[in-house]
Design a protein around this nucleic acid. Structure first.
Lengths: 216, 216
DNA sequence: GTTCACTCTGACCGACTGGTCAAATCGCTA
DNA sequence: TAGCGATTTGACCAGTCGGTCAGAGTGAAC
């Protein structure tokens, strides 16, 4: 709001525009990596700048040299997250083979739960709290994208290439089933025991589940 | 540890044993209700005693007259939660009709997501953080109960009354699909729009999904 | 209506948290 | 290698948080 004032000087080198220095790139990415680790494990309010700073190997004032506030770090993390998260959905091709498209969407999503459990939990944390920091993107970007894909799926069903299932709930079911293995990992591991790889069994089970569900 | 000392006097009337007074019963339940509301929405660290006190219509010191600490309130809430949460699983009858038993377990679980979304989110919050406050119950009570039911399901499959699916992942899928509608309610509503009841469509969709999955 | 345990509260405390700042240090370039 | 902006830090601050405490208020049994 004001910048005539006193503290408006959290320089990031990018006062004017873009040219990030080597050190800036390095430290910003260190901070975001550390923030992902901490935020995903403890939620926004449950995380402290000291934790993030320590995880990143920097001092707290140094964090605040690169980001103006705790909120800003979290926001930057969130900004990219929804895109990453929805990328597999964007990759679904309307002119592909319907069952294959949906199956491979599901598999990509499961793979993301395996490879990026922290991102999954960060996202889940935000949803659980009612998504106070991404309402806009949710109501617009997300809905638009999902509706578009739901239309495509509906087309497939009308053409008789897919069992008649509600497209929205089909998409929800893919989200729920794949993200569960990242978000509730402790629970899954507690049940399966420490020597079982949850994702192995999950892959086979979900193949069978969606195979049977989608048969026309 | 010590009780000779100074502060060992957070009387609750139940110093000796049981007899809770009328006021105690009332206020303890007010506090637990308020704590459920607040903890489920903001997580443990994200919630403050002031929020809970205000929600309960009591003063903060008065909260601490009934419970020795914030932790204790949360613990009391958690204590009952796992039992409530697993009750439907306990209700599954080994000598019932296999598909009907599983379908009605699923429906009961979905009903719980509809009727007790706060409990669901409280549970989800705890899982996301790695369940630091209920590791014991998870590793023992939960595993035992789930394994028992998995055995029953395996028996049904061996008897040819059920499609051959991994029992553990079948149970996980029921958890994931039903709890998703409570835990990610904002997301679901953002996609479906404000005028649609998510649980209506969910009920139909899940009936079809598990119907197709379990056909022998 | 006195009594005594139960209930409640305002004032307070030490620890922690997000954030600031002046000054020190670093590292690139001319 | 001198200079100057980029980077880093110790000390500090105001607000919040969980929790304590001495004492005031309350209600039911006698």
């Amino acid at each position: 709001m004001n910048d005539t004032g006193n503290q408006a000087r959290f320089a990031q080198g990018q006062d004017a525009d873009k040219p990030l220095t080597r050190i800036q790139k390095l430290n910003r990415s260190k901070i975001l990596e550390a923030a992902l680790e901490v935020f995903s494990a403890h939620g926004f309010r449950g995380s402290t700048l000291d934790q993030i700073a320590s995880e990143a190997g920097l001092s707290k004032p140094n964090l605040l040299y690169y980001f103006p506030s705790k909120e800003a770090i979290h926001a930057e993390l969130m900004a990219g997250l929804l895109d990453i998260w929805l990328a597999p959905l964007r990759a679904m091709k309307p002119d592909g083979e319907p069952r294959a498209e949906i199956m491979s969407y599901m598999r990509r999503k499961l793979e993301m739960s395996r490879e990026m459990p922290r991102e999954s939990r960060l996202f889940a944390n935000e949803m659980l709290q009612g998504a106070p920091r991404m309402e806009d993107e949710l109501g617009h970007d997300l809905k638009t994208l999902v509706d578009a894909n739901a239309q495509v799926i509906r087309g497939w069903i009308d053409a008789g290439k897919l069992a008649p299932v509600d497209p929205h709930h089909l998409i929800f079911s893919i989200w729920a089933l794949t993200q569960h293995y990242a978000d509730f990992e402790v629970q899954v591991r507690a049940v399966l025991g420490p020597d079982t790889d949850p994702f192995e069994g999950a892959g086979q089970f979900l193949d069978m589940l969606f195979g049977r569900l989608l048969a026309p």
